[in-house]
Design a protein around this nucleic acid. Structure first.
Lengths: 231, 231
DNA sequence: TATGTATCGAGAATAATATATTGATATATA
DNA sequence: TATATATCAATATATTATTCTCGATACATA
């Protein structure tokens, strides 16, 4: 296995790696020890070559005729994505979205441990949500500094997001996961990821609109699927 | 204004349009009637040419030396993205993420009206969340068909997502907004948008890991910002 | 009226990404 | 041992997205 990692990996690749990870973990449970790009590609509707390129970018190599060792790929992806060493995060904004994220247990498997939540609302401060303490917002910068927290998650309304980002940066946070529909202004070395649901919705509804225009009354009846039963 | 719309618009463009929309709405409130690509680009940290191209793709044109008429751009984006005509949606999975989405009032401004939620859990069925009824999952296909609902939002656990998708498709749904961390298998004409938080998290933590490796102890103290006050 | 300037618009050049092609390698089988 | 085959690896091509360049236009000002 090649341990040399390329300096930069493209965003699309980065977002596909968790898909492979998820699928391969399933295979591991079924005790399938090796897997080919072709198999992965078929399962996930991706080009096999692309899968191979992505794995290569993550520093993972396989063997001709054999494929990739499932466990090694899972391990390699986790290592490459930094899921091995858990980093602590603060979540700011204990509204509905914030609460939902606090309840996501699986984040910890991906190396993200939300250690505390912050909110402006005194009614929420002091309570616990999904087992995480909700603290007063004015403690944010100071605590981030003292606890050396490196990741901040912003789930406050748009108008407050910039101020929260400033507070996080002042506290030494290096990466921000922003759920507010605004572009944050931060120093260059801070990593910001925007999770803007309105943007996603936009592309969805635009495509739907076009599809409907092209084909208003889709003949779904012809290919009616069974009524699904939920296991 | 050019009313000819190109057949396909790139995904990145589609995701930038809401940003412009948001910013321009602010300008509208300040009664700024015209705006240039340069201004938009500076505000959102984007290349002015790209802004121009995006607006062009949405069928919006401006005037040299003047810029774009703010109101016309806002209107044009809304029209192009299909926000003008509201479509109804079903949300499946009234867990924490589902509840959060049910509370997003602003979706309606973007043309998305969630009319009902569905859940497998009998304890949730019959109750209301954020004013929306929670119905039994086995009613999903039938109701989607009878109400001609075209959009489905999936916020169930990964293992149940495919079955829910099947049920939605059987009910005639044309677009699916999928929050479960799986790739759904659907007929070709169905539009699927994956909102996979684990994927986003992956790229965030990978970048953070690289940044920390390159520069473990960032000298943030030098450029310490003020402790932000939240208005 | 003439000139300067800020802006849009369109097309070309560059960069990024995805796909296709070819070659190398390890295993299985005859 | 020789051959066939499935697979990875590396390179080349095609596609897409972004950025750059230049010309056209409309207003401001002298």
């Amino acid at each position: 296995m090649n341990t040399e990692l390329p300096k930069t990996v493209s965003e699309p690749t980065l977002k596909r790696l968790p898909l492979y990870h998820h699928f391969l973990k399933e295979l591991l449970q079924r005790e399938q020890e090796a897997v080919s790009c072709t198999d992965i590609g078929e399962e996930l509707n991706l080009d096999p070559t692309q899968v191979r390129k992505d794995l290569e970018a993550a520093g993972i190599s396989g063997r001709p005729r054999i494929g990739y060792a499932t466990a090694a790929v899972v391990d390699g992806i986790e290592r490459f994505l930094g899921w091995k060493k858990v980093s602590e995060a603060f979540l700011v904004g204990a509204g509905s979205m914030g609460s939902a994220l606090l309840g996501y247990r699986k984040f910890e498997e991906c190396g993200l441990k939300i250690v505390a939540a912050f909110d402006r609302d005194p009614a929420k401060v002091g309570r616990k949500i999904h087992g995480k303490h909700v603290l007063a917002l004015d403690k944010l910068t100071d605590l981030a500094q003292r606890m050396h927290v490196l990741i901040g998650i912003i789930t406050v309304p748009a108008v407050e997001a910039q101020a929260v980002a400033d507070a996080l940066v002042a506290g030494g946070v290096r990466a921000i996961w922003n759920f507010a529909p605004v572009r944050l202004r931060v120093p260059e070395h801070i990593i910001v990821h925007n999770e803007d649901l309105y943007c996603s919705l936009a592309s969805l509804s635009q495509k739907l609109g076009q599809a409907l225009e092209a084909n208003p009354a889709e003949p779904v009846t012809a290919r009616r699927l069974r009524t699904a039963t939920l296991s």
